[in-house]
């Protein structure tokens, strides 16, 4: 094809088409979620954290510690599965910050930020896609639990409600990691700092052991930990006796996290150099 034809074709493609109406925030957020999910197609190993890790943790804790902690592995499973569900999903939230940091450092977000769209939509979209990952992780944990001998007494509805509660808390918690992801320079640093924060928060809880044997000051801290409240709430729902107080506390904690960290995220995002 000649130069002139090329130029003519290019001009034709550039000459004004009708500008489509501006999409709303929900539509643009869903488009960003689509982008994040597309990436799984190219980098399937990013699903390792929601597949391999929960399986590893469940097996490790059940068979290495279960007998010692609860007398028998099958008894420990009934206690552990709701907790491991919480732990798995909470650890998955770190990747929200890591992938945000990657996007920002590559310059992709400069374009997004200069588009005429509802400005939080790239972040909200990423969180929606993460919710899909959390759901995958939740299902893997529960199915694996059922195979190993976990027998929840709650109804299907209560089990679904427990997954939804975990998702709500994870979504709220993610905003902490978006803040960390926007402050730190490299994704490795984001990973390091986030894990340093998450390990004590998840282990100083009632996920793995009953805090009854802990020293008083630690027991107080563990009981006040929102992760413990979430775990108690999930155990309640899966055991068919909803712990209403804990559920309410989890919802309050989620709201507080969002109220503090989502404006902070948006501030950092808008003013990122």
């Amino acid at each position: 094809m000649s130069e002139e034809q090329n130029m003519a074709k290019m001009r034709a493609a550039l000459v004004e088409q009708v500008r489509p109406p501006r999409p709303n925030g929900i539509a643009t957020s869903l488009t960003f979620a689509w982008r994040a999910l597309l990436k799984i197609k190219y980098v399937p190993e990013q699903l390792l954290d929601v597949t391999f890790f929960p399986v590893m943790f469940t097996l490790m804790f059940t068979y290495l510690f279960g007998g010692a902690l609860a007398g028998s592995t099958s008894e420990y499973l009934q206690f552990l599965i709701p907790g491991i569900l919480v732990q798995t999903v909470i650890f998955t939230t770190v990747y929200t910050g890591v992938s945000l940091n990657d996007d920002v450092s590559k310059g992709t977000f400069d374009r997004f930020r200069s588009l005429p769209i509802w400005s939080p939509s790239p972040l909200v979209g990423a969180l929606i896609a993460d919710a899909v990952r959390y759901t995958i992780a939740s299902i893997i944990v529960i199915v694996l639990g059922l195979i190993l001998g976990f027998r929840p007494t709650g109804s299907i509805l209560e089990i679904v409600a427990s997954i939804v509660l975990v998702l709500i808390f994870a979504f709220s918690l993610s905003w902490i990691f978006t803040v960390i992801g926007l402050i730190l320079q490299t994704s490795k640093a984001v990973m390091g700092i986030s894990m340093t924060f998450l390990f004590p928060v998840t282990f100083a809880s009632n996920i793995f052991v009953d805090p009854a044997t802990m020293p008083g000051w630690l027991r107080a801290a563990v009981n006040a930990n929102p992760v413990s409240m979430l775990t108690t709430a999930i155990r309640g729902l899966m055991g068919g006796r909803a712990a209403v107080a804990e559920i309410i506390w989890v919802l309050i904690a989620s709201a507080v996290l969002i109220l503090i960290f989502s404006p902070a995220t948006m501030y950092l995002y808008r003013n990122k150099r």
Binding site: L38, K106, G107, D110
Partner: peptide, 14 residues
Amino acid sequence: VSLTGQFASVDEDL
């Protein structure tokens, strides 16, 4: 306006 940044502002993974 539209911006084409100095560091490619396209998504390398897609």
